Computed example of a mutant assay.
Amino acid sequence: MNLFKTGLVLGLLSAVGPFTIDMYLPALPEIGRDLDASVTQVQMTLSAFFIAFGLSQLFWGPWADQVGRKLPIYVGIGIFAIGTIGCALAPSIGMLVAMRVVQGVGAAVVMVVPRAIIRDMFTGPQGTRLMAMVMLVISVSPMLAPLAGSGLLAFGGWRLLFWMLAVVAVGSIFVTSFALKETLPVERRRAINLASLRAGAKTLLSDPIFLGLTFIGGFGMASFFVFISSASFVYTEQFGLTEVQFSLAFAANAIGFFGASQLAAPISERFGVVPVIRVAVGIFAFFTTALLLVALAGGATLWTIMALLFCGNAGLGFVIPTTMVMALDEHGEIAGLASSLGGTLQMVAGGLMIAVSSPFFDGTATPMIAAIAVCGWVAMILTLIVLPKITARDRFAAAT
Results as ranks from 00 to 15, higher is better:
V276H: 06
R159N: 08
Q66P: 00
V140L: 15
T289I: 10
V112S: 12
L291F: 05
G78K: 01
G124V: 05
G312M: 02
I277D: 01
L153P: 06
R159G: 04
L13C: 06
V134W: 08
L316V: 09
A98G: 13
I117Y: 13
Q245E: 14
A290M: 14
G68Y: 04
R393S: 01
L296W: 11
G7V: 00
A335S: 14
L384Y: 10
L384S: 03
G240S: 08
F219L: 13
M44G: 02
Q66A: 14
K5F: 02
V75D: 02
I283T: 12
A108L: 12
S177K: 14
A90D: 10
G17P: 00
V110I: 07
G272H: 11
M131E: 04
S47Y: 00
A179Y: 13
V9G: 00
L89P: 05
M131Q: 12
I334R: 09
L263A: 14
V226D: 07
L25S: 06
A166F: 15
P62F: 05
K389R: 15
A264F: 12
S358M: 07
I354Q: 04
F360L: 14
V101W: 08
F224E: 03
G342Q: 08
I173G: 14
L213T: 10
D329I: 00
P275S: 07
I118Q: 13
S261F: 03
A349C: 11
T84N: 05
M44A: 10
G317Y: 09
V378H: 09
M368Q: 10
V134N: 15
T383P: 06
F286L: 15
P146E: 02
R119S: 15
S247M: 12
F287W: 11
I118P: 10
A338M: 10
S339D: 09
A397L: 15
L337M: 13
D207E: 12
S92A: 12
T322W: 11
F286D: 00
M221H: 11
R115V: 12
T45W: 02
K202E: 11
K5P: 00
A179V: 11
M131V: 03
Y235H: 12
P18R: 02
G351D: 09
A355G: 00
V105Q: 04
R278M: 10
V112H: 07
T176K: 07
S340Q: 07
M143V: 14
